[in-house]
């Protein structure tokens, strides 16, 4: 547990900053809805009729004229993107930072197996993502409470589960990259998160690349789909689960076998 505690402590400041920034931004957007309600209602029809752009943002399914629609099309998109970026930053640094910071000799000469080190570091990734999502979701629910709005509880629960799962997948892929790297590939991690986000938008409007939906985890975590259909795509989640498990196993195998740099 020592490595897990150490990682949680080292990443506590980053977790706090990301959680407060994302949580408070989205919380603020929810509270702003009342003041923008009239103008947003006026824009709802034109926004739903913008062709592929409306499709990409999910505004063809949900109306901005309701707080639920506004939440699913705008706020959830921000939460998904920033949550994935947080997971990516965390994932890319967890293993590679030891070699980049020349601490791998210190960490790996205690009577703790490399497998245990990988497992504890991965658990810290999961816990960080979980705490980030729990606190942010609590802030959003508090926002709805202050607004006196009722929210579709089932859709909300399904969406936040899918979003958490999506962030875990992005974080795990970056964790796998981290096992191969000897320096912190922060840029690559952020690039992956943004690429997945863009892939989701593109595959919704370009039929020729529709199959990208199986690649990007943003697809199954799309709030517009979830708030409209009130269900998750089992096949997409299964693909995501397989990718996540494979990425973790590759990270475990690679870190166990690699020659650690001084």
């Amino acid at each position: 547990m020592t490595v897990l505690k150490h990682e949680m402590k080292i990443n506590a400041k980053s977790l706090l900053i990301w959680t407060l920034c994302v949580g408070l931004s989205c919380f603020g957007c929810i509270l702003l809805y009342t003041s923008m309600e009239d103008s947003i209602k006026g824009m709802a029809d034109p926004f739903s009729d913008m062709g592929v752009m409306s499709q990409a943002l999910g505004m063809d399914k949900l109306s901005l004229a309701t707080l639920s629609g506004y939440y699913a099309t705008e706020i959830a998109m921000i939460h998904n993107l920033l949550g994935a970026m947080f997971a990516a930053i965390l994932g890319t640094g967890l293993l590679s930072k030891e070699e980049a910071g020349h601490t791998s000799e210190f960490l790996n000469t205690f009577p703790v197996s490399r497998k245990s080190i990988v497992l504890q570091k991965y658990r810290s990734l999961l816990y960080n993502i979980l705490i980030f999502n729990l606190v942010c979701t609590a802030m959003y629910l508090f926002g709805f409470f202050l607004m006196g709005e009722e929210i579709d509880g089932k859709a909300m629960a399904l969406y936040h589960f899918a979003s958490f799962f999506m962030q875990v997948e992005v974080g795990t892929i970056c964790f796998m990259i981290s096992a191969f790297a000897k320096r912190n590939l922060l840029g690559a991690g952020l690039g992956i998160a943004v690429l997945f986000f863009a892939s989701d938008m593109m595959c919704r409007v370009v039929p020729a690349i529709e199959d990208l939906k199986y690649v990007t985890p943003f697809y199954f975590a799309n709030a517009s789909d979830i708030f409209t259909e009130e269900k998750l795509s089992g096949s997409m989640l299964a693909v995501g689960a397989v990718v996540t498990v494979c990425a973790f196993l590759i990270a475990l195998y690679r870190y166990n076998k690699k020659d650690l740099a001084q």
Binding site: H6, I10, G101, H102, T103, E105, F106, T109, F110, P111, V112, S113, Q262
Partner: peptide, 17 residues
Amino acid sequence: REILGKIGYMPSEAMFY
């Protein structure tokens, strides 16, 4: 693991967090 439990190692580069 058993070996690492019984030794004290000091690397040439003393690097910590």
